[in-house]
């Protein structure tokens, strides 16, 4: 039963493997340039398992120790995940104890696979979904570790490689811009952050920026909610 589910799941996860290979390796390389070796790449990809979240974590690892700030930004970055669960409540309930690991593996990519694929006839739904999450997790760990090892084996001038994070978020920003009916949320995000950056400076602007974004979101709720319907 499990083998059949694993086989069926594998076919669907190949595109995710490609995407993770690129992003995970970029993460591993960047982490290595900050002096964190392969053990760290392994630990982070095993226990955190998040794309954007782990890139932000690199910045946090290279800033003064601030646990509250770290938790805050991680929550903000991953807030969208709060809503992934909503459409999967029923199938996860049917999966039994496996569901805890399945929740842990709910990245953007895994979520979109789970929402768009149904298990083939005769394949157990719970195990099918479990293996999609498990395989994606394995690809991610492998890619992060591989990137880190590669950088150690083939040292190169890595000046400027931090920009991979800027490029990643910029591209997501552009995609979001194209598919949203209103751009007010983007203006709030960029505007509030820039304002707080000018007032509080680079090392302390994030927390006030997040608070300001929440306040502005609450203020604009009436106007924005209609556009999101």
């Amino acid at each position: 039963m499990k083998r059949k589910a694993l086989k069926a799941a594998f076919i669907h996860t190949v595109p995710v493997m490609m995407g993770y290979l690129f992003l995970g390796m970029a993460f591993g390389i960047l982490l290595s340039t900050k002096g964190y070796g392969v053990i760290w790449a392994f630990i982070m990809s095993l226990f955190i398992y998040a794309g954007s979240g782990q890139f932000v974590a690199i910045t946090l690892l290279t800033s003064p120790f601030d646990i509250i700030g770290a938790v805050f930004i991680t929550l903000m970055v991953n807030l969208r995940h709060l809503f992934y669960g909503l459409s999967l409540l029923e199938p996860f309930k049917r999966a039994g104890k496996k569901k805890y690991y399945m929740m842990f593996t709910l990245t953007d990519e895994t979520y979109s696979l789970l929402c768009s694929t149904k298990p083939p006839k005769g394949v157990d739904e719970g195990w099918f979904y479990f293996f999609i999450g498990f395989l994606d997790h394995c690809y991610w760990i492998g890619s992060c570790v591989l990137g880190n090892l590669l950088r150690t084996a083939v040292p190169f001038n890595s000046k400027g490689i931090d920009f991979v994070m800027t490029a990643l978020f910029l591209v997501i920003f552009i995609d979001q811009w194209k598919d949203s009916k209103t751009h007010i949320p983007q203006f709030i995000g960029v505007g509030a952050s820039l304002l707080c950056l000018v007032i509080f400076g680079a090392s302390r602007f994030l927390l006030p920026a997040m608070v300001l974004i929440l306040l502005l979101s609450a203020t604009c709720r009436k106007r924005l909610e209609a556009k999101f319907q």
Binding site: L82, Q176, P185, V190, S193, L197, I213, L224
Partner: peptide, 25 residues
């Protein structure tokens, strides 16, 4: 309803914030 609203709206604002965060230095 407010939680649903934040869920739709904040992912857009957060990515904007992260772009600024990357450029902070």
């Amino acid at each position: 309803a407010f939680v649903q609203y934040l869920g739709k709206m904040l992912p857009y604002a957060t990515i904007g914030m992260l772009v600024v965060y990357c450029l902070k230095d």
